[in-house]
Design a binder for these strands. Structure first.
Lengths: 339, 339
DNA sequence: AAAGAAATTGGAAACGTTTCCGGTAACGAT
DNA sequence: ATCGTTACCGGAAACGTTTCCAATTTCTTT
């Protein structure tokens, strides 16, 4: 049978449609007995309100967009999962969209918001810096940037954000290697084009070297992007230089796994010959052999918090929030103390 | 400014709203010049039709549901990506939903379809066997099961499916080990509760042993579910039995990585002491060290095909399709020939 | 040129909600 | 009994489309 409408329910319950609507939306002025009866009929006939009609009338949807740059990174898969769970609890729908590597994230976001009439958007990774004439601002849709570094101070009034202390975290990681006695520490990191988290991790590396009286040398840097393969190749380029590095900091776990593979494939040992520290704390790094010491981001928490902020923005129209999470260095098998 | 409506466009273009609607929907009977003019106005004013109104009128949505069991498996992440791309090309929206480990997949599917008024559903993994009184049938929403084995013949009229030859693929994997001279081959596989692909891979293992004159022995079997950790633990249980196995077939790559980690952590070598064959062909198995020989599923193709079938079902109301893909054994570093 | 057919167009109803507005009922106070 | 207040409720308009139907224009055919 065709779906029941609110009119049918009203008729069955012997009340007006507006009354049913009020019950449905928890509006106050409806008598207790009437409310009870209507609720019972709804239950009995398994009535589900038509969302399209609702959305049309309310001129908005229940759609939350999630825009992801770099699906292949399990770090984001995990985050998506957490986000989905939160969204689902509140009876919104998650519309997932993956961004190509070279797409203009801002443009895609705008189009997505307009086209799907999104009520809010969460962006996982990507670049949202070059905001021209407040395109995004005047469509008034709340946006949360997660794992994205906002460089322009002014943009903090446009977006909310959830992030970690990338610079500090990287500092701690490299400082850890220094304290273990390493003097020649390589860096495998995302390129200079990366104004986002990659740059900050790079900065942390620099600062840690300096703090430990070591010289920063560009020869020790090799660029990559967020894939196994790129980490592998980048590490190989670094090793080809014969710099006798004893440790390497890699700014993401999947790259760290690629890099580790490169090291091991050459017959070098981890950590005996080269120590490795990764970044992210995905499960993969724990099950690599040897397990990889890494900087763990509280990924689920970050996902949940992002969603929570978004709902605040949507429901209460509060001002933007900027949350910074702490990270934790997980010591595992991939690092060795030099004597 | 508020969004333009079709009425505004009609007015600007000096035509009736129905004409604009016809242009929008590629209906035939509208004159070439009028069509041209309307199109130009639409372009100029950047008009985007209101989807809620559309959906209401059409009494359906553009939402394609994707129901995933086991997000943590990168095999599915990859698949989701492929599916998303296809869905996006056709200007539908993907609504992603993750299923809990112990949820009733059929119930969730039904609820999802009703609640989100889905136009179609793709299920990645899960269990859709115990179909009671055609609950799903009479809501008439096309459903494609991917990587799910349909055991009840009658259900092939209810769902379409995309799958690989699990039994054959597993046979080939184990046969490969046999041909390398292995006599004592362990199996790490999903439990007996798994009526799905796990069972078939288990069957393939059995048949390969038999075909090579080896005895099937339950002692050599250890059960797990699809996580790194479970693969790790399961392998440890197997090794604890001191059966002197020289090879193990693991029915998914993430489990295989966990299992390999267990082997290596004991100081055993791969492949010198134990050979390992995995299943799926995820990228990580290539970057594990040693890289893991595995059965590669054409995951992107499978995702694309699933979506394609779904669109056929939606648009042409064709009959159900059941596609079986071929797999490929990728020989890598984790297997050794016994002399 | 007239008639009929075909192509093109506009008007209006309908989809299922929400919400404004007004109305009735109940009740206490006078 | 009348009035005013409050609580509760129903009718109907409106949201922005699609589509049926009828009307108008254009084209063919004679």
């Amino acid at each position: 049978m065709a779906d029941l409408s609110i009119k049918d329910i009203a008729e069955i319950a012997g009340v007006g449609v507006s009354t049913v609507s009020r019950v449905l939306n928890d509006h106050p002025d409806v008598g207790a007995k009437t409310r009870e009866k209507v609720l019972q009929i709804i239950e009995e006939y398994n009535y589900i309100p038509n969302n399209s009609a609702r959305n049309l009338k309310r001129s908005s949807t229940n759609n939350i967009g999630v825009l992801v740059k770099g699906i292949h990174n399990p770090f984001f898969s995990q985050m998506i999962k957490a986000v989905e769970e939160e969204i689902n609890k509140k009876d919104y729908s998650m519309i997932l969209h993956y961004n190509e590597k070279n797409s203009n994230d801002i443009e895609v976001a705008i189009e997505l918001i307009k086209e799907k009439k999104l009520k809010g958007l969460i962006c996982l990774g990507g670049d949202f810096d070059d905001l021209e004439n407040n395109q995004l601002l005047n469509l008034k849709t709340p946006i949360v940037l997660t794992s994205i570094n906002i460089t322009e101070e002014v943009n903090k009034d446009v977006f909310s954000s959830v992030i970690i202390e990338n610079e500090v975290a990287a500092f701690e990681a490299v400082d850890y290697l220094c304290k273990l006695g390493h003097k020649k520490i390589g860096l495998v990191s995302t390129g200079e084009g990366d104004k986002n988290v990659g740059r900050l991790r790079h900065e942390g590396y620099k600062r840690a070297l300096k703090a430990n009286g070591l010289e920063y040398n560009e020869d020790f840097i090799s660029f990559a992007h967020y894939t196994f393969k790129s980490g592998y190749e980048s590490m190989n380029r670094l090793l080809d230089k014969d710099l006798d590095i004893t440790a390497v900091f890699v700014t993401s776990d999947i790259m760290a796994i690629g890099a580790s593979k490169a090291i091991l494939s050459r017959g070098l040992r981890i950590p005996e010959d080269i120590s490795v520290v990764g970044f992210d704390g995905i499960e993969y790094s724990e099950y690599f052999h040897p397990s990889i010491t890494t900087v763990k981001q509280p990924v689920e928490e970050m996902g949940r918090k992002s969603t929570e902020i978004l709902f605040h923005l949507i429901e209460d129209k509060k001002e933007q929030q900027h949350i910074v999470f702490k990270t934790e260095l997980l010591e595992r098998e991939s690092c060795k103390k030099l004597k």
